[in-house]
Write a protein that binds this DNA or RNA. Structure first.
Lengths: 238, 238
DNA sequence: CAGTGGTCTAGACCACTAC
DNA sequence: TAGTGGTCTAGACCACTGC
């Protein structure tokens, strides 16, 4: 049995406050010490309960600021190449994009291998963060083969990068390979999304392949409670 | 800064023991109290460090038994309908399947909606767990429309269910829609995989659609450190 | 039965945020 | 500066596993 333990019952109380709407989506929970006092438990129990609900995706925290009720997840088909902005509009949600950096740098080993470059080669790297309804939920890091994307860094990098690749550079006939795994954010990534190091996230990597060569390697990190992927299949006879 | 905190340094020590091979893949870590003693820290620190590494997918725990080094993840393309067994063989890993239950039951609301059944309708439900190299890592729950799968429950349900659907029931021309999200295991699920309630997992749902109707709705829960999804795209001109 | 992880107490100080 | 979450101590008992 469980549910008899202290922190489970604390979690259950908070959960029912959330479901009843007493704690609205996006709103701030009482402070940890406040919860201790109201429910007569030690702080360890309050925190264990909060961690438990965080794992469920029911609440999230902003580093050193507090705990908040998670909004409904954003729904997203990673195999589609629509701009995210269109998706957001369709779901009636507010999407913001902020450019964090756009540099020419030495390629990390993994990237160099993917892009079939020497270990000392330079690549173009664009890093952005994106918010849904005011919450930073997505960190994108995109690596481009330098020779295939002249002048990339001087273009407008706050819009759809996909559209740039397709329209400005003319890469239309292409394939996209995708990887999905569950990885927490490292210190740098966490800071950029204002969360704690180790926050659970869904890692999505996309390799853009043209003429059998990978020319763009992208990585997206989505806060785990903020995203739900949905892939519509194709009819096959297999 | 971090890395100066006690539990970060404990985590770093364990991590280097793992990377150096001193703690081999699959092997058991020292007990929590053992770690406390060896490194001169309190148990909270030891546990915080272990939780941190668990989130990274570097270690996992069996409920009340101990902490273990996570093996390399299994790689898996959910859009393919190969049997998992073939995939496992290709990756040189040992896959086992165990039937947990096969029943005719009332359809849960979500399932009834998907299968376009009335709220009181019955469905066929098959639940299995699967292990990779001896570790239970996957829980499958599969719901079938009763009228489309006569005699299903009397068939051999320990092999490829996909092959059954395709060959024994002849559903060849079909579409598969997929959903992926990050959800922890509930109490029942956790028990079946011998892990703790709330263990982080990747939830994969697959709807099999034939002639525009969903006839099979499956849910898979993979322990988050045991799986990496890889989807090979198709060349498009879009 | 010994040892493990799971839960829990009642405090403490620190780093940081918001005012 | 007051209050927050983040880290930490030094214990404790319980439920369960493995012998």
């Amino acid at each position: 049995m469980n549910s008899l333990t202290t922190y489970h019952s604390v979690a259950a109380r908070l959960q029912s406050s959330i479901h009843s709407g007493e704690l609205a989506s996006g709103s701030k929970l009482p402070s940890e010490r406040g919860i201790c006092e109201q429910l007569g438990v030690s702080r360890v129990n309050a925190r264990d309960a909060l961690h438990f609900l965080e794992a469920q995706g029911l609440i999230y925290r902003l580093n050193r600021i507090g705990w908040f009720v998670s909004p409904a997840p954003f729904i997203y088909d990673p195999t589609q190449t629509h701009s995210l902005r269109d998706e957001a509009r369709a779901q009636n949600r507010q999407l913001e994009t902020e450019l964090i950096s756009a540099n020419r740098t030495a390629a990390p080993a993994v990237i160099a291998r993917k892009l079939e470059l020497s270990a000392t080669a330079a690549v173009l790297n664009v890093v952005r963060r994106r918010s849904v309804d005011g919450r930073w939920v997505l960190l994108e890091s995109c690596y481009y083969r330098e020779e295939d994307f002249p002048d990339l860094l001087s273009k407008d990098l706050t819009g759809s990068l996909n559209a740039l690749v397709r329209d400005a550079y003319g890469f239309k006939k292409r394939r996209q390979d995708i990887g999905i795994s569950s990885k927490p954010l490292n210190q740098t990534q966490a800071q950029q999304l204002q969360v704690r190091e180790g926050s659970p996230a869904l890692k999505l990597s996309r390799d853009l392949i043209v003429d059998g060569r990978c020319i763009v390697a992208e990585t997206e990190h989505w806060l785990h409670d903020a995203i739900e992927m949905s892939i519509r299949g194709r009819t096959t006879a297999g």
